[in-house]
Design a protein around this nucleic acid. Structure first.
Lengths: 155, 155
DNA sequence: GATAATTTGGCAGGATATGCCACCCCTTGC
DNA sequence: GCAAGGGGTGGCATATCCTGCCAAATTATC
């Protein structure tokens, strides 16, 4: 039921990943189609869930959110109930921009965005480590961005 | 030069983070402004760099890119030249969606997107560990997504 | 090679974006 | 307290764009 994605669809996706507010006529020119079928393809990609959403990407430092931290989390136990409770709590923290459960060395990974190290420290001390299921955490702090892309490696 | 961001700007940013393709009239209604001043504020936010770009967020699994892996990298040496070479190489890999230099336990963190574990393994064996500056890597594989947001914690 | 299904392109009506100008509000200076 | 100035807002006119419909073309199927 998910229609096959052909070369034109890939061109559309590539273009919209770079500029999600592109007008349909501009997009149609770029992919070599007239506006009508181009728009129809975009709508199909949206409705079929290939395109999840469109978002504006903000410049963190420009709005006082200069620090991103990657946090690895270890749980006290791995049973489902404790994990569920952790998930629900984490989802409510706006500072936690991403969070995944992992198997392997640690139990969860998350990305936290705050104003600065002090703000992060407060978040960790006041909220993160107070979640009952959390045993310990380790943080990795990016010092310099080498690459930050929102384009998936199509093809 | 960076104009202050007031409450209306924050409302605009919040809305555009959730739906970057919102029409200007819809956005104006949501923030309580008429279309004209609303559009001008959006343009200012774009030109001043508060809004970096607009992107379409794709559903990875739907296009055959079901695996995201977090990789921690250790360098052989930390001198600037080696690091620079690492950065330039990594920027060319489309699978590497994000990459940061860190200080602390490891030397770099990256997020890699591939079709599956096998594809990741090929990437690691054929490309990543062949970068001269790379001494070793450790991977954390998300098994379940608890949260994935594109909204920065404004305010 | 003919038919059917899918996709494309063009067109018309409606909605939206854009640029301009007058008005309002708030501040500044007297 | 009052007048002048500046920034922000709202409304309007034009141009552009989106949207749905139908015919034509392309592709697939038999």
């Amino acid at each position: 039921m998910p229609e096959a994605i052909d070369a034109i669809d890939r061109r559309i996706l590539r273009a919209l990943q770079r500029n999600g507010r592109m007008s349909n006529v501009e997009l149609a020119n770029e992919v070599g189609l007239s506006p009508s079928p181009c728009l129809r393809r975009v709508r199909l990609l949206e409705e079929s869930g290939v395109i999840d959403q469109y978002v504006a990407v903000l410049n963190g430092p420009r709005i006082g959110l200069g620090l991103t931290v990657f946090v690895r989390v270890w749980f006290k136990t791995q049973d489902a109930e404790i994990t569920q409770q952790f998930a629900e709590t984490v989802r409510k923290f706006p500072e936690v921009v991403e969070c995944y459960l992992t198997t392997g060395e640690c139990d969860a990974i998350m990305r936290v965005v705050t104003a600065d190290l002090h703000a992060y420290w407060r978040f960790q001390a006041d909220h993160l480590t107070r979640i009952p299921s959390v045993q310990s955490v380790k943080t990795d702090v990016p010092m310099e961005t080498i690459k930050r892309s929102y384009e998936l490696p199509l093809l």
